[in-house]
Design a protein around this nucleic acid. Structure first.
Length: 308
DNA sequence: AAACCGGGGAA
DNA sequence: TTCCCAGGTTT
């Protein structure tokens, strides 16, 4: 859950998750739809699928217990070099590094590393430097110390709190006043803008839903019927007609924008009604959607327009 | 090595 | 708006 996601964001999801799925066996057995509902709004939905895959492997191949070595943990879906190092060192005391984004930033500042810390060769170099410093005992505490130093003091967004830093006298960035320059990170690319028309199609207090494909953005989440590009009322009515759906009362409600890391959706949101609940859609009440159907946050703005 | 995969909070 | 977050997998 914590991969590329803030601790504060994760906490409520974590509690709900542990309540519902307290054991690896429970995780391995949960229905995909229920798992996705628990993950709704967290983003990076592959993480949920990977976690279940890993749970199945742990149950089948490891008798329900996590392997303790980083090398084996790395083979599990969703566990890469950082997570494997964190689990192995913190939970099982193995002497391996656990270098996340915090740690790369801290070490780059301390050593004066000028390379881009998002590039794999620079991360490899920094991990080797950390590996040479690891203590034989309490390696997990040492790793957590580095992570916590980055999270609380040597922060990534804004000026680091060097006045509170226990290692500032050994820090290149502090000595040479390079806190704003280090670490070096590649710039984010501009986002591609996509235009869509969404229709909140209702029939007898039920709302039309569609499930997204499993190999796209927001895989397997549900959404309201969508067509490409901004369109006018008559064009939308025609598009629905082609699927055999006659609508009435069609009108534009609002415009919504959803911002992702790499793209933006600009959405024109329509309301429409239809007599028959055609099978091309899944028809659910607002209450059913909120309880059982994971809908992407991109559509959160549509919620207040749905009938009770 | 680069592209892809979300969402939200802070600057 | 941009930046960045207890990253990993696929191409």
């Amino acid at each position: 859950m914590l991969q590329q996601t803030r601790v504060e964001t994760v906490i409520p999801y974590y509690h709900a998750f542990m309540e519902k799925l307290p054991t690896i066996e429970a995780l391995a057995a949960i229905e995909d739809q229920k798992l996705l509902k628990l993950w709704q709004g967290l983003g990076y939905y592959n993480r949920a699928a990977n976690m279940k895959k890993a749970a199945l492997i742990i149950v089948e191949e490891y008798n329900g217990r996590l392997p303790e070595k980083a090398e084996l943990l790395m083979k599990l879906p969703g566990i890469g070099i950082y997570t494997a190092g964190a689990i192995a060192s913190i939970a099982f005391g193995e002497k391996v590094p656990a270098a996340d984004g915090n740690v790369f930033r801290v070490v780059a500042r301390i050593t004066g590393e000028e390379g881009n810390i998002l590039k794999s060769n620079i991360q490899k170099k920094l991990r080797h430097q950390i590996a040479n410093l690891l203590p034989d005992e309490k390696t997990g505490d040492f790793n957590q110390g580095l992570i916590e130093l980055g999270a609380l003091i040597c922060i990534g967004n804004g000026m680091p709190r060097c006045g509170e830093c226990p290692v500032r006298d050994d820090c290149m960035a502090y000595e040479k006043n390079l806190q704003k320059v280090l670490p070096n990170r590649s710039k984010n690319k501009s986002r591609k803008i996509e235009y869509k028309s969404v229709v909140l199609l209702t029939s007898k207090k039920k709302i039309a839903l569609v499930q997204r494909q499993n190999d796209v953005l927001l895989a397997n989440l549900w959404e309201y019927p969508v067509i490409e590009n901004f369109c006018e009322e008559n064009e939308l009515a025609e598009a629905l007609q082609k699927q055999g759906i006659n609508v009435t009362g069609i009108r534009e409600l609002t415009k919504e924008k959803a911002v992702f890391s790499h793209k933006e959706w600009h959405m024109k949101v329509y309301y429409a009604e239809t007599e028959t609940m055609d099978e091309v859609f899944t028809w659910k009440s607002k209450e059913e959607i909120s309880k059982y159907y994971p809908v992407a946050s991109a559509y959160a703005g549509c919620w207040k327009y749905l009938p009770e």
